[in-house]
Structures are given as C-alpha cells and as structure tokens.
Design a protein around this nucleic acid. Structure first.
Length: 577
RNA sequence: GCGCCAGUAGCUCAAUGGAUAGAGCGUUGGUCUACGAAACCAAAGGCUGAAGGUUCGAAUCCUUCCUGGCGCACCA
C-alpha cells in the first residue's frame, strides 16, 4: 500500500532533478521536500510548499519554481491533477484510483496498514516497570498503555519488538516491603508490633499476611531474617501486577530483574568503566560549582556520618545541576547504578531503538543513564524516551482523586477497569499527547453514548458489522460489485480517509507519539464515518442493487480499517453493542 | 532559587515552520414510518498566557516575563 506523502516527496525531488538537468532550474542541493495534506478541498488532497522552500537556494521566485515542478512532475496513476496556486503545488487524487483502493483494502484485510520499513530490526519498549510493592496505579498505567501501543505501532512498521518490564527486586524499598508484611503477619497473629515508619500501609499487605498464614501458619513468628517476607510479598505482588496488566491487554515478553545486574557483576563493571573515564569520585558530599545557587537545606536532608559515597560527575557529563550518588557510604549502590547497567544491557542486546516510557518525575534520572551510556562508548541515541505527565482521576463534580502507594490511598488499575472497562482505560490514557497532563473523567468514560469517544469509534465498527449481517440476511452480495460506482463525493471522502491509516502509523512511530493514532481514530475516521454512513445507504430500496454491492464493499473496507485501528490501540472491535 | 513539561473556543484537547488555527463535549436551534437516535444536521464561540526577535511565512524556533504541574535524596 502506497504512502502518498512519501511517494509525492520522492517524485517532487525527481522533478527538481529533471528540471535542473533540463536547465529550467539552476543547480543546488535539494533539501528534503515537504508534502502535507491540503487544508481545504478546493486545494486538492495533498500540497507542497516546496517552491517556497527552494526559492532561496534557486534564487528564483516561487511562482517560477512552481511552473518548473509542474512541468517536470513524473506522472503517476494516483494523481489526477497537479496545480500551482500561489507558492504551493496542489495534488488531486484520481477518483478511479481511490475507488480501486476499496478492493485493495479488502484484499489486504488484516494486513492493511502493515509496512516493512524496518523489517529485520529489533526494537524494545520498556514501560510500567513499577516496583513490586503494591497494585499498579493509574499513574503507571498511562505509561503502560503508551508503551504497549507504541510496541504495536512499531511492529506494524516491521520492527521485531520486545516489551520489557524492569523489575526492581533489590534495594531498600523491598526491605521495607518485607518489614511491612512481617508487621502485618505478626499483627494478624495477635502479637504486638510496631508498624515500620515508612512501611506500606495498603490493605493488600493484610491480604498477603493472611495468605502467608494460610501457607505457613505461625512458623515465621521467630524469623529474624526479612528475606522470607520480602520474597513472598515480591512474588505475590508481581503476580497480581501481571494479572492487572493483562486485563488491559498489556503483556510483556521479558521481565528483567534488577538483581540480575548484581548477580552477573554488571553493576561493578559499569562502575569500574566509569571510573576509568574519570567520571566518578569518592567524597563525603558532592562537589559543587563555585557559584552554585542551591536550596540551602537540600544536602543536609540526610546528615551523613558514615563516610564517603561514590559520585557520578553529572555536571561535567551533561551539565546537570548536581552530581548524583552511585554508591552509598554503606557500600550499597543507589538505584541509579543498576539502572545504568540495565540500559547498557539493552544496548548490548542490540535494540535500536530501545524506547523507555517514563513518568515526568523520572526525567533527571534518565538523563544520567543516557549520558553515562554515551560516555561508555555506546551510541546513546539508540536509547529513546517518552516522558509522560501525570494522570488525575476526576469525577462528575470535578473532584480529584490521587494517591500514593505508601499511604495505601489510590485508585488501582483493577478498580478503574472494573469501573469503566479496558477499552476506555486504554483510550483515555492514550488520547492525549504524553506532554500534557490528563484529567481522566471517570463519568465520561462510563457513558455509553456519542459523548464517549470509545463508543463513538467502536460504534462505527458495529455499524459496519451490522450492515454486513443485514446484507447476508437479505441475500445481497458484494462479490462482483464494481467499486467504480462509488462516485458520490461522500463515498470518495471516506475512501480518502481510510487510506490515511498508514501515514498516521508512520507519523506516530516517527514522533513516538501514539496519541496521534487515537486522535485520528476519533476526530478523523469515526467523525467522518458516521455522517457518511447515515447518508450513504447501501440497502435502502431506492439504491440499485449494483450500487448496493459497491457500498457494501466500501463498508467492508471501512470495517477493516476500523478494526485495524482499534487493534493497534489494543482495543476491542465489537461486532455488536 | 534552578531544571523539565504545559498554557490554543465556556470545558477537554489537536494541529510536519506553510494557505482563512481545527475537533469533541457543553450551549442554542433543527432531524426518527430507512442497515442501531448508543445516530445525524446547523449556528454561535479565538489578538494561540504577555512582550520582543528569527523567517518569504510562527501556535510551532530563540530571548525575557506571567501562571500551573512535576522534579531538584547516600528513596525507587
């Protein structure tokens, strides 16, 4: 399936070269030429401001360049006319070609919109990567949906994609988790305990304690080691997280354990390599710039009594404000060192790109990781990141609910899925640019009406399925229908929209911006579909039987595109409501 | 104080440096003896937070300010 903007850009470049050869344009280096959708129907379907781009290098007026471009433009079956208007060159698609695309889409079926640009290349998407300390929160799931959708999009452009979950099963938080479980365990057994000050207060810890009692009884009462509690909690919570994520269609190919970069020594190897590059030093406090203008209380938050820590020269490495700790004075690494080792592992495993989906609060950490990988001699550009802003749940009164895992006050993913369903969770998490905060309107997500984009999009698919059923009941076949009967401007407009899918996929992948697909699905595809379907009746008694068949084909093609679009977003495509 | 992100219609948001900035919701007014009204049509609604700059052309790039979110741990 042809991607028109791409193909037009190539043909334009050819036109420039031919014009140069013919002496109609002077010689100059040809920059990448832009092709856009025309803003208005009277301007045709696609347009290029190439003449204005080239005016400077060619030292000619745009109008003259337009003439040269038009006269040298290589003809092609899908372009009906090429016109110059002002400094723009406008392209109009051929009706006959558009009509044939209906058959082409039906022939492609589920493969419509699949491209092979990156065939044979391996990409990775890391997302969610929550600590196994509690239920998956709504904040985390935004990253999960963005990542999973991105993985689907990358696959549809030919990449082989691994979805990976980085699993922090080491470090202090896990100890706190173990202590929390032990406290609840003892409490359930009627023993007086003091709950750890920073412990996890959520009710699920009681549930785990009950499970542990069911499994082991009071055998662990005298247990001094925190490990049995830690391991039990970690394993059970991980299972619960996995199950929650599966409910919204997010499945991982690989769970990467933080412990593994300790076990294989990668953590210390990375530290040694950074030390060899002179990027690490030992000191009681981080070194500071002479004119450092810092919050006075920042470094004294935790008074350090126990000796030197090991610091990464983040300021030197990437112009950061502060150097960051890699190894605590206790000799235990901070999370940042294993994180660097982990990303080095991604690069060693050959992923290009390795995309990391992170919440806005992790941006500084990521910069260190990327810079460190670069300093170690890797092409750090292979590591890509999508930073997303936070999600706030809003109810009908506009009240906000948010929470923290520590306090045990949150809306967990499971609760949200129970409430609004998987499709709505995915759609609303996806529909906005990662850069903007989301107010997740629970009441809107619950609605089963046109106000709710989820239903609006899915209902378009339902209508396509419905008409196919009715046609079958009435014995109307589209088997030998002639697509060239689809001459109504509204029919042609719908075909134009259907064939945009590959372009949208390409843009979403190029910009690592899966919201572009969600936006298109609602505001472009479904928005155009419904009025068309309303007006363009296939099975009405006034419609000649030949035309009925053609229109059934149009809706069969629309069904394929809608199903494919929903599938890329990880949403279901119901046959009936 | 410093850094990152955002500020576009009443609300929620789109918009590769390109033509007169677009949708949805809401509002107002219309459409049901037709494949699902869980739908459709129409109207009103904007100095793109402010001011400068770069450019043939700026919501988009640069500078400075204002407002909001998130960071600025030997937590993850």
């Amino acid at each position: 399936m042809i991607r028109i903007p791409l193909d037009l850009a190539q043909r334009l470049e050819q036109a420039v070269r031919d014009a140069q050869q013919a002496g109609d344009l002077p010689l100059f280096d040809i920059p990448p030429l832009k092709v856009t959708h025309a803003p208005k129907p009277e301007h045709g379907d696609y347009a290029t401001p190439a003449a204005m781009q080239l005016a400077k290098p060619a030292r000619l007026k745009p109008e003259e360049i337009v003439k040269a471009l038009i006269s040298h433009f290589p003809s092609t079956d899908y372009v009906e006319s090429v016109e110059g208007v002002g400094g723009f060159v406008n392209f109009r698609l051929s009706d006959a070609w558009l009509q044939r695309q209906v058959d082409a889409i039906i022939a492609a079926g589920d493969d419509f919109g699949r491209m092979d640009d990156f065939a044979g290349q391996r990409a990775q998407v890391e997302c969610v990567s929550a600590n196994p300390t509690g239920p998956i929160s709504v904040h985390r799931i935004r990253g999960g949906v963005i990542g999973d959708t991105l993985a689907r999009l990358l696959r549809s452009m030919g990449y082989t994609v691994d979805m990976e979950y980085y699993y922090n099963d080491a470090g202090r938080q896990m100890d706190i988790l173990g202590q929390s479980l032990r406290a609840r365990y003892l409490e359930r057994l009627g023993l007086p305990v003091e709950f750890p000050a920073e412990g996890y207060q959520g009710h699920y810890i009681y549930d785990l304690a009950d499970e542990l009692i069911a499994a082991q009884g009071n055998a662990l009462i005298e247990e001094e080691d925190i490990k049995p509690f830690k391991d039990f909690a970690c394993a059970r919570i991980s299972e619960m997280q996995k199950a929650s994520l599966a409910r919204v269609g997010i499945l991982f190919d690989n769970y990467f354990s933080e412990q593994s970069v300790y076990a294989n020594g990668a953590v210390w190897q990375v530290l040694d390599q950074l030390r060899e590059k002179g990027l690490v030093y030992e000191a009681l406090h981080p070194e500071k710039d002479e004119d450092a203008d810092e919050r006075p209380d920042a470094e004294d938050l935790e008074a350090v009594a126990s000796g030197s820590a090991t610091w990464l020269r983040s300021r030197q490495l990437r112009g950061a404000q502060k150097d960051c700790a890699l190894v605590k004075s206790s000799g235990e690494p901070t999370y940042r060192l294993p994180d660097i080792a982990y990303h080095v592992s991604k690069l060693d495993r050959g992923y290009d790109p390795a995309v990391n989906i992170l919440g806005a609060d992790h941006i500084e950490q990521f910069k260190d990781v990327k810079a460190a990988a670069g300093a170690l001699g890797y092409d750090a550009e292979r590591i890509q990141v999508v930073i997303h802003q936070f999600v706030t749940l809003v109810n009908s009164e506009g009240e906000r609910e948010s929470g923290s895992t520590k306090k045990g006050v949150f809306v967990a993913l499971d609760d949200l899925v129970d409430d609004v369903g998987m499709d709505a969770v995915r759609y609303f998490m996806l529909a906005r640019s990662a850069d903007s905060r989301i107010d997740f309107d629970i009441d809107l997500a619950r609605k089963k009406s046109n106000e709710n984009p989820v239903y609006y999009i899915q209902n378009a698919h339902v209508r396509c399925a419905s008409i196919a059923r009715v046609a079958a009941e009435r014995g109307v076949s589209m088997e030998d229908a002639d697509v060239h009967l689809l001459t109504d401007p509204r029919e042609l407009a719908l075909i134009r929209k259907l064939i945009e899918l590959p372009e949208i996929v390409e843009q979403a992948v190029r910009d690592l911006a899966p919201h572009k697909l969600a936006f298109w699905a609602h505001e472009e595809l479904a928005r155009l579909f419904h009025p068309t379907y309303e007006d363009i009746r296939a099975l009405h008694s006034d419609v000649p039987v030949e035309l009925a068949g053609s229109r059934l084909k149009l809706y069969a093609a629309a069904k394929i595109v809608l199903a494919r679009t929903l599938s890329l977003m990880g949403m279901s495509a119901p046959e009936q409501m």
